[in-house]
Design a protein around this nucleic acid. Structure first.
Lengths: 231, 231
DNA sequence: TAGATTGTTAATCGATTAACAATC
DNA sequence: TAGATTGTTAATCGATTAACAATC
């Protein structure tokens, strides 16, 4: 039996959204079956990894046709909680916070933003799409009233932890942190850090690395050396 | 000798930005030395992991005082390429693209945005902070003129790959992809996917998971069941 | 049937942690 | 010196991959 007996490793959970996205594309394209081999090719995994991963779902493939894109999609949704509706609020009505509040893509996955907050009285009352920016002091009450599941932190680095504490106290169940710093929460309240700046540093390393001897750096431009900054 | 003999695993590279951030905070706070144990506590790693990781830097600690925050910071910067200046452009002048173009935090790490582009003629010519939005058709020329290192993709899912191809062809050295889809590049051009939507799914799983038997879900609200969506 | 594919076990690989001698 | 800390080797742990019997 393939279902969720053993606990699902985080490494597997992180690949699941990729399977979901692919399988939904295939289903929309009218493709009813897909093999572990094809999935592997498309996502850059091995077919072994694919078959192992899908073992953690309440779902089975067919040794004749492979996996049904339709039922695999449903099983992935169920596993990931993507078949639920999640209520979110955004804290911080700066450029990033506003962009998040206006982003349509969350909706499609069941993530719905209900309100946006800022600590700056000059911003409260202003409009962001269909929202009116409210003052953070109203936030705890709103978390309870809207039964908010997820708080999205889009405030400056310096206030990220403070905002996280207030959100947790108000009863939020998870955090998505977009501030360029880690945020700590009590066990039981998961937090995901977006790490965009950290990602850029990883990219920066990768660029420097691939430009090293061995792999020839691609011919480009006319200035081979980076301007140094000092750090 | 501790220097970069063996290749540095990606798992290590991904922790390096955390060390850098911590160590720079400490240095600014006037703390000149830090031990692997303290670093581990602050970042949630083990001291073994910390010592192992720092092994990949051109740098050594002192068995008397631990690590000098100053020289550790410098070694991390050098390793990550954070001591270089990187030139970036943003493709997509929607809410997200504009937020990125206006974000101050990149600068501090040596990442500098030089221009922003959009395919919508209605947007070209409009202002985003100190930038004028330009048409994507001008992008390849700008990549060469400004010697752009990194292209930031902030366009809708459907055009992400196309934009990536153009950027690579124009000579960009790496990509940061914020569209909610994977983007493929030839070997030698690293790409980092931001995976914000995938992260939300991971969070969604974590929330559902921690609410399971065993760990008592924290008492909250009065509605225990998620509204189902169907998927 | 013959051939392709899954589900699963075992082998490999890599990353994390523990332990400890060397250093200051 | 005594004690704390690093650097490094060895042990453990977990994740990925290979292999293959079972299935359709």
């Amino acid at each position: 039996m393939s279902a969720a007996r053993k606990r699902t490793p985080l490494s597997v959970i992180r690949r699941l959204p990729d399977y979901l996205s692919l399988v939904q594309d295939l289903r929309k394209a009218g493709i009813p079956w897909v093999s572990s081999h094809v999935i592997a090719m498309r996502l850059g995994f091995t077919s072994s990894t694919v078959r192992q991963d899908l073992t953690y779902l309440d779902f089975s493939g067919s040794s004749k046709f492979g996996y049904s894109t339709d039922s695999l999609g449903k099983a992935l949704c169920a596993k990931l909680g993507a078949d639920a509706r999640w209520t979110m609020i955004v804290i911080g009505a700066g450029n990033l916070g506003r962009a998040l509040a206006l982003y349509e893509g969350f909706r499609r996955r069941g993530f719905r933003i209900r309100a946006i907050f800022d600590s700056d009285p000059a911003k409260t009352g202003s409009r962001v799409g269909r929202f009116t920016v409210r003052h953070v002091s109203e936030m705890p009450a709103a978390v309870r009233r809207f039964r908010v599941d997820v708080g999205i932190i889009a405030v400056p680095e310096a206030s990220a932890q403070e905002v996280a504490d207030i959100l947790v106290l108000a009863g939020v169940r998870g955090l998505l942190n977009l501030a360029p710093t880690r945020v700590v929460t009590p066990a039981g309240v998961p937090v995901i850090d977006s790490r965009v700046v950290a990602s850029l540093l990883e990219l920066s390393y990768a660029i420097t690395e691939t430009g090293l001897p061995g792999r020839r750096s691609r011919p480009r431009h006319d200035e081979p050396l980076r301007r140094k900054k000092g750090c």
